[in-house]
């Protein structure tokens, strides 16, 4: 076990993938000499060379489009999009090409491309540096969308993503980059829990709280705070956002009868809606109350002095837990 920051854990995972497969190449803006604006790729170009760790021109569609060509040639490109809000110029290549090539060619052409995107807010940045665009991609057949919440998962899941023959959108919770955790770098990614599986990170009886990426830490804090007030909260770290491991969520909800979903992304049409609908379809008669969503508002990501109002924090999620349990809460007395 080594103590690593989240960012360093990804760096270590990327290094292992580069070592294990000569077809793995990293591409992105400032990832080489600089080591990435968050230093996630620090030192990799020095050790693996400019043809394996490629500083690209400043053009996101170009980066993803050339990654498609490299994948055609048998490579496994790992693309870094510098910030969540910069992925949109590449949206066409991701949605029309990366996602559909396998279907289009009846499996002849594989797109083992990993697209790393630092996402989410809480770091006091200007526009386009704090977004949570994961639902766009979860809504796109052909893509897999995952998000680790801990250094160990970041280290393992990045290697699993790169080894996967399907394209994977890998959302990195950037406000957790400097969080430290124990990482077993010798863990075999093939033997570790598949990135498709959710993980119960805190056992509980009264309510199921589902989160992913940056809010898993918050959700665990919620469970601790709730315990002080006599509520037992089961926390599930989704890890995979497309597909969501509904079997794990369903099993928990059958036990607790109540569901709260928290994410930073805006509410309408988001993953919370998908989870609430799917769980309602699957185990309606086990639900004691309506599923509750605690999410960012349906607003453009606000300027930084307002962001803590937009982001679901501990108390807002706790308020959602109260609502699910029918305890007094901020909306008590409101109908519907």
């Amino acid at each position: 076990m080594t103590q690593l920051t989240f960012a360093r854990a990804i760096n270590s995972g990327l290094r292992r993938s580069l070592e294990n497969d000569a077809k793995v190449v990293l591409m992105g803006e400032d990832i080489g000499t600089l080591g990435g604006v968050f230093r996630v790729t620090d030192g990799l170009q020095k050790d693996f060379g400019k043809h394996r760790v490629i500083d690209t021109p400043l053009a996101e569609s170009g980066i993803v489009g050339t990654a498609v060509g490299l994948a055609y040639r048998g490579y496994r490109p790992v693309v870094e999009i510098q910030f969540d809000g910069f992925v949109y110029p590449a949206f066409d290549q991701i949605v029309c090409q990366v996602a559909k090539m396998h279907y289009r060619t009846k499996g002849a052409v594989k797109m083992p491309i990993t697209i790393r995107i630092p996402f989410g807010g809480g770091i006091g940045s200007p526009e386009f540096h704090s977004e949570s665009p994961e639902a766009y991609f979860a809504h796109t057949p052909g893509l897999r969308v995952i998000s680790p919440s801990s250094p160990q998962d970041a280290h393992t899941m990045i290697q699993q993503a790169i080894a996967c023959d399907d394209p994977v959108l890998f959302f990195e919770p950037k406000r957790r980059y400097h969080d430290k955790g124990d990482v077993d770098e010798s863990l075999d990614p093939g033997a570790a829990l598949s990135f498709e599986k959710a993980r119960v990170v805190a056992d509980g009886r009264d309510v199921t709280l589902v989160a992913y990426g940056p809010l898993v830490k918050t959700a665990r804090d919620v469970a601790l705070a709730a315990a002080d007030e006599g509520m037992s909260v089961e926390v599930i770290d989704l890890r995979s956002l497309a597909p969501v491991d509904f079997a794990t969520v369903e099993a928990s909800v059958r036990k607790t009868g109540r569901l709260v979903i928290a994410h930073e992304a805006v509410q309408s049409g988001g993953l919370g809606a998908e989870i609430a609908a799917s769980i309602t379809e699957r185990c309606f008669y086990y639900l004691e109350s309506a599923p509750v969503r605690v999410t960012g508002f349906d607003v453009p990501y606000p300027y930084s002095k307002l962001e803590m109002h937009h982001l679901p924090g501990l108390d807002r999620i706790l308020d959602g837990v109260d609502r699910a349990l029918g305890r007094p809460n901020s909306l008590s007395g409101l109908e519907g």
Binding site: G62, G69, L70, R73, Q93, Q97
Partner: peptide
């Protein structure tokens, strides 16, 4: 998708160069 394939050809050529 108009023009999309020019990037694919360029990326493929990056692969040829690497190889």
């Amino acid at each position: 998708i108009i023009g999309s394939q020019t990037l694919h050809a360029t990326g493929y050529a990056m692969g040829i160069q690497n190889d």
